[in-house]
Simulated scan of single mutants.
Amino acid sequence: MNICKNFKFLRLTGCCMRNFADIRPEQKPTYTLEKLAHRELIRVHGPEVLPFLQGLVTNDVSHLQRPDGPSSIYAMFLNKGGRVLYDTIVYRTESPDTYLLECDREASEEFRRHLRTFRVRRKIDVDSIDDEYVPWVLFNTEKCGEQVGEKLQRNKEWELFISSDPRLPTLGTRILAPTDFNGLLRAKEMIVTPPSSERNYQLLRYKQGVGEGSEELPPGKCFPLEANADFLNGVSFNKGCYVGQELTARIHHSGVIRKRYMPIRLTAPLGANQTVQSIAGANLGRVFGHAHNHGVALLRIEQVLNGHQELVVDGERCFAERPDWWPSDLPSKRRQAFTD
């Protein structure tokens, strides 16, 4: 009888041990850390820097000066006709007289020239700090929008400025680091890896339908609301005047926005022809960036999303998607524009 009980005990013990073996510690999430080689930081400094920037960008820079305000904002510089010239992320610093502006590296020289043109008699210094700091991005495609700043252990060797992307939580966390930063981060509760062909910042943006830089947002070719600046927290309709403000406000209040940037999925490598067409041959938009069968295109909203059109680019099928970060219920005026 004792033997039977012992055997029963052994069987129960075996089951418990097997169940115990199935319990593993929760795996740490994997984040990608990528140096943004195509972006550059510009320092704008001076006692009148706030009114200077307020008169040039679409967003309200004064939010950065509030004690409880954000550490960065997304904004655009427009020409007098209200079309986009440059996209930027504006970062606050410890000095209220100094801001850092992130811009496209290829357009950096023209961007600085544009800023200096509007200085007039203001004491404003505009210079590149490319030899001091460079931007990085840290993101996780599975844990979109998770705040990771508190998980990064501060290393006294590096002075890092950490800020969530002001456009979309999905786009990760911006890190401004010294130029000699080697990309090694000490982090709690996560694993940090370098980018790969399947997991990188460009592909992340394309899947969200977010254009960036002079190639994807060609200067003078689109309006800020077509580039989703209103949905990406990049425009203020309550601040004072700025270059291009009149037409931007008029488009916003009329609600007539017929084209927007959207993510597209390609079925074949894209050739020289980047015009998106219907099967019947009508032009519906243009692709401005693509990689690994994903891209970003400026497309006609009504025909593409509500008309159930079969889309073709360079002779091959492609599919446009409505970004999940777009408002689910658009204002009635804009809804009316879709049916014009």
Score class of each variant (00 low, 15 high):
residue 299 L to H: 08
residue 250 R to L: 14
residue 94 E to P: 07
residue 172 G to C: 05
residue 191 I to S: 13
residue 211 G to M: 14
residue 227 A to K: 03
residue 227 A to L: 06
residue 329 D to S: 01
residue 318 C to Q: 08
residue 293 N to C: 13
residue 199 R to H: 15
residue 140 N to E: 06
residue 150 E to D: 15
residue 148 V to C: 05
residue 314 D to G: 13
residue 302 E to M: 04
residue 159 E to H: 12
residue 336 Q to N: 10
residue 295 G to N: 09
residue 29 P to V: 05
residue 307 G to T: 04
residue 230 D to C: 07
residue 282 A to M: 04
residue 222 C to Y: 09
residue 7 F to E: 10
residue 294 H to T: 12
residue 338 F to Q: 13
residue 134 V to N: 04
residue 246 E to I: 00
residue 330 L to C: 08
residue 273 N to C: 09
residue 172 G to H: 07
residue 72 S to M: 07
residue 300 R to C: 04
residue 66 R to A: 05
residue 65 Q to A: 05
residue 111 F to I: 09
residue 225 L to N: 05
residue 169 P to S: 07
residue 163 S to A: 09
residue 127 D to Q: 12
residue 261 Y to N: 04
residue 63 H to F: 09
residue 114 H to V: 00
residue 214 S to D: 00
residue 172 G to D: 03
residue 123 K to R: 14
residue 206 Y to H: 14
residue 46 G to H: 02
residue 180 D to S: 11
residue 339 T to G: 06
residue 99 Y to G: 11
residue 278 S to V: 02
residue 170 T to E: 14
residue 231 F to D: 09
residue 218 P to H: 03
residue 7 F to I: 13
residue 197 S to F: 11
residue 2 N to D: 15
residue 21 A to T: 03
residue 191 I to V: 13
residue 281 G to Y: 00
residue 140 N to W: 01
residue 300 R to S: 00
residue 21 A to K: 15
residue 43 R to A: 14
residue 312 V to Y: 13
residue 339 T to P: 08
residue 15 C to P: 06
residue 61 V to R: 06
residue 265 R to Y: 02
residue 187 A to Q: 05
residue 189 E to C: 03
residue 168 L to V: 04
residue 123 K to Y: 02
residue 2 N to E: 15
residue 32 T to I: 08
residue 20 F to Q: 09
residue 71 S to I: 06
residue 329 D to W: 00
residue 68 D to K: 02
residue 301 I to G: 12
residue 15 C to H: 11
residue 324 D to Y: 06
residue 9 F to Q: 15
residue 324 D to F: 10
residue 120 V to M: 14
residue 93 T to V: 11
residue 272 A to H: 02
residue 86 Y to F: 11
residue 40 E to T: 04
residue 118 F to E: 10
residue 176 L to D: 00
residue 76 M to V: 09
